[in-house]
Design a protein around this nucleic acid. Structure first.
Lengths: 341, 341
DNA sequence: ATAGTTAGCTAAACCGGTTCAGTAGGCGGG
DNA sequence: CCCGCCTACTGAACCGGTTTAGCTAACTAT
């Protein structure tokens, strides 16, 4: 019988109006009589009509989807729960708007740029999230050139036409150092993240500044790529020295957990012989032994804020920067006063 | 000048043929003269023409995208690197095909089903991956009804019209139990995953069967939801007993790592006083102390195979099941012969 | 020589919306 | 009473591809 597919034309005929008017009524635009509008909407509902996203896409040149491109070393990606949580936050906003999230995971930066080009060429997305900002990030001029709306996760270090949704890392690092200094530590080291990434750089800078502010000698810093393995190696190097640090501030939790493992292996007791702090407050922190003192980051909240901002930008052509509550120190059991020599 | 947008019509005019013929040439269909075809392709290339995905979508009723809907407790999602790795595998196949991955993360099963309906109603995807299979999974009849091609990750327990891409968990669990039994353990417990999930059920069944096969008494089993916190609680319960197990087989690594933490906290030495094994071989395993004996799963390989199979299904209307190499035991340092009482 | 194929190609319909120019009718102002 | 203007609405073009019916010319078979 009525196996006929319901299109705007069917609705129009049934309501006794033109296709155009149905379109106007649907997108509640002016120029439609009040009762006509109601009749149209009623008919649409009766027929169970849902406008075709594809047709809409073609005529409006929009895709009703947002994009996220992740360029990370697979190891780092796998052990860092940032993205799953962030994405869950993003989705909680998008679902209500009936928009989709297009995700790309790529192996390197060159592919990443190429992926943005493809996404735009294919009109897959109407806007994107820029995560893992880098120094002089090539994506910013690229996206500007491509004319694709974007939101940066954190403030980039150069000029950027895009709104930034930021969680400031500095206070968390500062608080960690101060906390350790107050406990009496003087030789505090830092296992830094990748210095290609802005948050890696900023955490290291915050560490250095906090050491100075605490009146301590410059702390030893080891650069890593944020991976668990690199965290382990860095810890081994730090602890293998004749004079070793009494505390280590890690740039993320996975590395701190790896550090915990190395300490155990070397028979160095945490927190008695060595204090450590992490960054991110991943789930594991609460459950390793001793539980990890770390800095909370709330990636899901970040995801919601980023999605909201990006939608606003696309809607209004502009959106203000958003500063989320800074990450703060969560004190657990992995730090204590240094042992007396 | 030629700021004009390049469409098929422009290419057609420039090549002196009709739009239709350009389309034929592009999709290399018969009915186009050899040199005409070359000329058309040459013109297309000269003009840098890329057919519009949106227009194609509308006329072919396809979206050139695949979907993945994840319904997981945020805690579990965050600590389990399965999806990031799986997705990386999927993407490595999709990128070459110029298809996109649409990802949805939803809070519960009801929303999950609704999400599949939306994806189909909006024509967002041409096929989907079904992960985290459940007993009598409602998604299978739903997708059958919706007519959406799908691939299941693992073999479902009921009838399914979809190809299954499987990594058999059983041998890994069996090997773990056998390994522990060979070391001399008799009281082996199992911290099982969610019994709503097929892999949770199968690992538990494999555990029970392996215990019997090894001639051991039925092992104690605690059910969890696969989360780190639940793994911690379960461990605490097992170790708080008067007569406690000498070994614990965990249904996944995050719980095993939590178990390691609990043991440390209680002053129970691993592996001297307690042996443990995990499942999945996540990155952390190598770096906790002692390094975790576990079962490897290779989610990225799984992702590639699943994507390949799904594409084949969509192409040919059918695809065979794929059985990937079974997960195998990786022996590290978290198990040893039981202490003499 | 004539009818029947077939390869190569064109024109137009189609996918299902949006948008814009234009028309008819109603109303207020002069 | 006429003009102008606004509101409600229609018809057609448009987005940019795919697909189908049908035409022509050349080639084969009889």
């Amino acid at each position: 019988m009525s196996a006929e597919k319901v299109t705007i034309a069917v609705v129009a005929k049934r309501a006794g109006v033109s296709k155009g008017l149905v379109s106007f009524a649907l997108n509640n635009r002016p120029g439609v009589g009040a009762e006509t509008r109601l009749r149209i909407l009623q008919v649409a509902q009766d027929l169970g009509w849902e406008p075709s996203l594809r047709a809409r896409s073609l005529s409006t040149q929009r895709s009703f989807a947002l994009g996220l491109v992740i360029a990370r070393n697979p190891d780092v990606l796998a052990s860092d729960p940032f993205f799953p949580s962030f994405i869950a936050g993003v989705e909680s906003i998008l679902a209500a708007e009936r928009r989709a999230l297009v995700l790309s995971v790529v192996p390197d930066e060159a592919t990443e740029l190429q992926t943005y080009r493809s996404l735009v060429a294919d009109g897959r997305v109407d806007g994107v999230f820029l995560s893992d900002l880098r120094h002089n990030d090539a994506r910013i001029p690229l996206l500007t050139e491509l004319g694709l709306p974007a939101v940066t996760l954190g403030r980039p270090d150069g000029d950027s036409p895009f709104p930034a949704v930021t969680v400031d890392d500095t206070p968390g690092v500062t608080a960690s150092v101060r906390y350790l200094a107050d406990l009496g530590h003087r030789r505090i080291a830092h296992v830094a993240g990748s210095q290609n990434l802005l948050h890696g750089i900023r955490r290291r800078e915050a560490f250095a500044a906090a050491m100075t502010a605490a009146g301590l000698p410059e702390g030893q810093t080891v650069e890593t790529d944020f991976s668990v393995g690199a965290g382990s190696d860095a810890t081994r190097r730090l602890l293998g020295q004749a004079i070793r640090p009494t505390a280590i501030v890690y740039a993320n939790d996975p590395m701190a957990i790896a550090g915990l493992g190395v300490a155990h292996e070397l028979g160095i007791r945490v927190p008695d012989d060595l204090s450590i702090t992490g960054f991110d407050d991943i789930d594991f922190c609460r459950y390793v032994y001793p539980p990890l003192t770390t800095v909370s980051a709330a990636p899901a909240v970040w995801g919601r804020a980023a999605a909201t901002t990006l939608l606003r930008l696309m809607e209004n052509g502009r959106a203000d920067d958003v500063d989320l509550p800074a990450a703060r120190l969560i004190i657990r059991g992995s730090a204590a006063p240094p042992a007396r020599p």
